[in-house]
Every structure is written in C-alpha cells, then in structure tokens.
C-alpha cells in the first residue's frame, strides 16, 4: 500500500516539493526556501523566514491540495515571489 507520496512540481524557475506521511505533510518552495507544513502541531503553518525556522504563522486553509493549487496559481500569475503576498492569499 502506498502511504506516502512525494511530489516535485516545476513552475518556471521554482520547484515545489510536497511530501505526505501519516505524521503530517509539507510543501517547500525552492529556491526561496519557504516551508508550509503541519508537522508536530495539527495546525497548518508557514515558516516565512528561512533564517528563523521557529517563526511560524498559522494559515486558515487546511487542505494541502488546495494550498498547493493556490501556490501554483500565485506563481503562474506573478512575475516575482513575495512571501507576504502569498501569505495573504493563504490566510
């Protein structure tokens, strides 16, 4: 049985990694080094500053697939990546 799924999506110069395990899921946007996950706590959160991993901002959207679609839509529509803009879309 396949219980864990790892995906890599390429959109322009961005790579979005997604991973799911029974322990939680994660989305990483590279090379901007942004992580969204629900590991260790049930609530979904984003780590907006890669240099301060402990800094987490909760987001209201809970569904990983919907969050991924929002990120893809944002990246497809934007010429540059701004984590604040993305957070607004996910709140």
């Amino acid at each position: 049985m396949t219980r864990k799924i790892q995906n890599k999506h390429r959109i322009g110069d961005k790579l979005i990694y997604t991973a799911k395990t029974p322990n939680g899921w994660s989305i990483v946007i590279m090379p901007d080094n942004i992580l969204i996950d629900n590991y260790h706590i049930d609530r979904v959160h984003i780590h907006p500053d890669p240099k301060k991993h402990v800094h987490k901002v909760e987001i209201s959207q809970l569904d990983m697939e919907k969050i991924l679609e929002t990120i893809k839509d944002y990246l497809n529509a934007s010429n540059s990546f701004d984590v604040e803009e993305l957070m607004e879309m996910l709140k």
Binding site: M1, T2, R3, K4, I5, Q6, N7, K8, H9, R10, A19, T21, P22, N23, G24, S26, Y39
Partner: peptide
C-alpha cells in the same frame, strides 16, 4: 522528517512524482 519516519517504516511503498 521523512527519514525519521522511514526508519520505522522500511517496507512502506512511496510514490514519487515529478510534475512539469
């Protein structure tokens, strides 16, 4: 995180996908 999980779940099957 994944490595820690898989240490205890060696026989689980993973589907890896790459979308472009």
């Amino acid at each position: 995180e994944n490595w820690r999980y898989y240490r205890d779940n060696l026989d689980e099957e993973i589907e890896l996908t790459e979308s472009l």
